[in-house]
Design a protein around this nucleic acid. Structure first.
Lengths: 194, 194
DNA sequence: GAAACCAATTGTCATAAGACAAGTGGTGAT
DNA sequence: ATCACCACTTGTCTTATGACAATTGGTTTC
């Protein structure tokens, strides 16, 4: 797992030279984390830490004003997981992040991250790259929400993340696509015949 | 204007102590920027810099696959303006940012920002705070897009940013709210009578 | 001051997607 | 083995919003 961890960090900042011993120092500050399916990485009201996810899948959701669950993200390894608002502003989260499968990775709280940011330029760069990437992915998704029809959004998800349909419930995928489960069901029924 | 600049930075990182001389060093690296109404701060294909906007209003837009303009943001002073994807990844932007009024502020390119990030912890913190804030604002907007009806989105904008209706064209506001200008017109007609 | 232009409004009609309720099929508990 | 539960599907009907085209009203220009 350590190897994957190193590869993940290195490949996230390809323009930076990082020695293995520097990486070892970083890794020491992380703690290994495992979650079983159904366990929570983050519950609303708690302050988010950061998880370098190396194995497994999670789902992130909140509630809208009607009290309905809204799935805001699915996460698959390898990637960094953190609630931007909660982590960087050290405020209670409004998001819940739950394991869809068994999950493995490395965990670190804000204080430790911040200290490492101070000590290691490459880790700072890693953090910045992660935040920027997160922003860009989120923006892409929003643009699809604006510009694509429900069916096109479904088709896109099918293309980019087909495994998801094996792992997550359709109603969660539906709310992620911002459609009702009823609509998703119909879209799937009609999808082949085109 | 320098005073406003300093206040803006200080108030963005209230938990950091910054001396005025440090701020002066920073300001020297910026160059003053003014735009007339209709001038562009950023054109697609160019690489984004960063603008500490101290006076005026701008509009940000792209084109969707149909070639229709989509307004993705309105910016009002005081705030930091930059295209996250273009700025941090130093890639050509897909966004256009145009002045809606006369605009004043301080401009800096990525290279200079990066150098100052290296030299000043407080400036790093400023950058991080700005990026996190940007992310959070954008996420809020997307959540409204998901959870609110067209009319509710209009009402929200009316409440939070009524000046905008004096400054921007309705069709641009419409596309920002992700509705057609026709719909916006009808919503405005019916809005009082409730 | 007429012509040209453009933003905004309005009318008519079409349609994607939601609401709600009933039905299906699989799984787990006792 | 049966019941209960839950995810998912399907039917019917409603509705918010879009598409498209015509009209209005203001401003620019020659």
């Amino acid at each position: 797992m350590q190897t994957h961890f190193k590869i993940f960090i290195k490949s996230s900042i390809p323009h930076f030279f990082v020695t293995d011993s520097e990486l070892d120092n970083i890794i020491e500050s992380f703690e290994e984390m495992e979650l079983e399916k159904g366990e929570y990485f983050l519950k609303q009201g708690k302050i988010s830490g950061s998880l370098v996810l190396l194995e497994g899948h999670l789902r992130c959701y909140t509630f809208n004003e009607n009290g309905d669950e809204v799935t805001t993200a699915f996460y698959s390894a390898p990637r960094l997981i953190f609630d931007v608002a909660s982590f960087f502003q050290q405020k209670p989260s409004v998001e819940n992040i739950i394991a869809l499968t068994k999950v493995k990775g490395y965990y670190m709280n804000y204080k430790t991250v911040d200290k490492l940011f101070h000590d290691y330029a490459f880790f700072r760069e890693f953090g910045r790259a992660m935040l920027a990437k997160e922003y860009i992915l989120f923006k892409d998704r929003t643009m699809r929400l604006i510009n694509l029809t429900a069916e096109e959004r479904y088709a896109h998800l099918m293309q980019t993340n087909p495994e998801l349909f094996q792992i997550a419930q359709l109603r969660h995928i539906a709310s992620y696509l911002n459609i009702t489960d009823t609509s998703l069901s119909r879209i799937r029924r009609d999808f082949g015949s085109k």
